[in-house]
């Protein structure tokens, strides 16, 4: 299984803090997972289409071609605004 987390505005728009997905071809990398989530419905498509969307694989900020393996943790969120 793959654990998927959402933070800040992304979590709020999707009304989803986390979900789990079976690992497979449609979750092979961060970009594929993004496309899989976007296919859920119009709202998910719009949020996942954001140019500002960032992704972390196993708690490390990653590119969209970053590989995802069974058991990984993937998080989607907007640009950070701490400090």
């Amino acid at each position: 299984m793959i654990k998927v987390l959402f933070f800040a505005q992304v979590r709020e728009l999707l009304d989803t803090p986390s979900l789990t997905l079976a690992a497979g071809q449609d979750t092979r990398n961060a970009g594929a997972l993004r496309a899989t989530l976007a296919a859920r419905d119009e709202l998910w498509a719009r949020v996942m289409a954001s140019e500002r969307l960032l992704v972390a694989v196993n708690q490390t900020l990653s590119d969209w071609d970053a590989e995802i393996r069974d058991g990984d943790e993937v998080a989607f969120f907007p640009p950070m605004t701490g400090g």
Binding site: A8, R52, M80, T81
Partner: peptide, 25 residues
């Protein structure tokens, strides 16, 4: 502090008397 602002996963949600709004990077 420069890298904390752009690399550490914190997000600010501001509120005034009328509305709440996520801070833009």
């Amino acid at each position: 502090i420069d890298f904390l602002k752009t690399q550490a996963p914190f997000w600010k949600l501001e509120a005034d008397n009328h509305e709440r709004r996520w801070v833009e990077a």
